[in-house]
Design a protein around this nucleic acid. Structure first.
Lengths: 206, 206
DNA sequence: TGATGAATAGGAATTATACCCTATTCCCGC
DNA sequence: GCGGGAATAGGGTATAATTCCTATTCATCA
């Protein structure tokens, strides 16, 4: 919801709406004219660079823009449908990129507006292997960007294409220990190299 | 607008709603625990210091908070928040009307918009009696207006003032059978006259 | 009461962003 | 085509935010 791309798009859109260039907008806000240069939006090594909160505050003050207006420029609406697929399908190829972000057009959608991660997606549970926590038909909302700590419920995809929902038991430099949600299933230990990505479960439908 | 005080108040309020300290919120967002220290909010000479846009984005992503909700925390309007109380408090009088809708001003709030039911509310789980499904500190979002079917997780309030979270096992004209979430606890059967209201659990934080 | 862990204050080191400067491109009017 | 102004790319410097570290306070628990 608040991403590098969103912030810069909102600044560009605001400037355009006021009939200003990026440099003119910066100047009007009392900032250096090159602050919003496109060449300053990424570091030389490709890492994203963000405008500071204070710079944004100055722009809003200088242009008489409310925070609500600015937010509306980011992606139009606050409520958003997030992509949804079945848990079994997630193991097939073509639904995720290397970072575990959803890609491709084969996703269904579910209305769930309250997610801070624009790459969040939803998985529909199939089968009874994750009882008693998740039941057949439940929907879990997953954030690939959220940091993960011990005790979090997580979705793990292995390099072999297997998709697991587990609780993070222990994480070391080389290994990840996962506790099964269903106590009848054994716990699982994965080496770092075996894991394609791990994403945290934020919410679960009941 | 977007002021130094607003930003820090929003971060503090967000942390408070999630039951976190300033340092715990920073840690959850993958930042250094001292990033949001009060001692870091002003420079030694008194000039204001702002959290970076990137840090705010990380907080939103890590907590599943939308920008909408975050802004609501700034101006204090809370327009998209839903009411929240602790599970234990729900048994006391004064929080619900006869239909099971939340009433009164003693509710806290949590950012979780758009569940589709304007009377929806949230309960914070306390204790381990509902393990393994709900853990201490989890938040469940409850809809008193949602229709209830067999297998749904429900919150039931008895006329005696007891509040239970159970799974609906069977419902007949005169009785309601409830399965305990913790298998070590016995199931429960209630007569129609014993029940004040039943509400369905829609979502549970993970 | 003592031990433990979380939270916080405060200082030094690191890293990121804003500023300043220059070169180049683009647009527009002449 | 030419000149002037704005816009932008890119690099060095200054400044601000984050991280890292330590000391202290506070709450909790045995």
């Amino acid at each position: 919801m608040l991403s590098h791309a969103h912030i810069w798009r909102a600044l560009d859109t605001l400037a355009e709406r006021l009939g200003l260039s990026a440099s003119a907008l910066a100047r009007r806000a009392g900032l250096d004219a090159t602050t919003f240069n496109r060449s300053k939006r990424e570091a030389p090594d490709g890492r994203p660079r963000w405008p500071s909160t204070e710079s944004i505050a100055k722009v809003l003050a200088a242009t008489g823009t409310s925070l609500d207006d600015f937010m509306a420029l980011m992606d139009g609406s606050g409520r958003r449908a997030i992509p949804l697929i079945g848990f079994a399908q997630a193991g097939e190829g073509g639904f995720f990129d290397d970072a575990g972000f959803p890609v491709g057009g084969a996703w269904d959608e579910i209305a769930f507006p309250n997610v801070g991660d624009e790459h969040a997606y939803a998985l529909e549970i199939a089968g009874d292997s994750m009882l008693p926590l998740y039941r057949d038909g439940d929907v879990v909302v997953v954030s690939p960007a959220a940091p993960i700590r011990r005790g979090d419920r997580v979705v793990v995809k292995t390099r072999e294409g297997e998709v697991l929902a587990k609780e993070l038991k222990r994480q070391t430099a080389r290994t990840v220990e996962l506790r099964s949600l269903n106590p009848e299933h054994p716990d699982r230990m994965l080496q770092d190299g075996e894991i394609a990505w791990i994403a945290r479960v934020l919410w679960a439908s009941q």
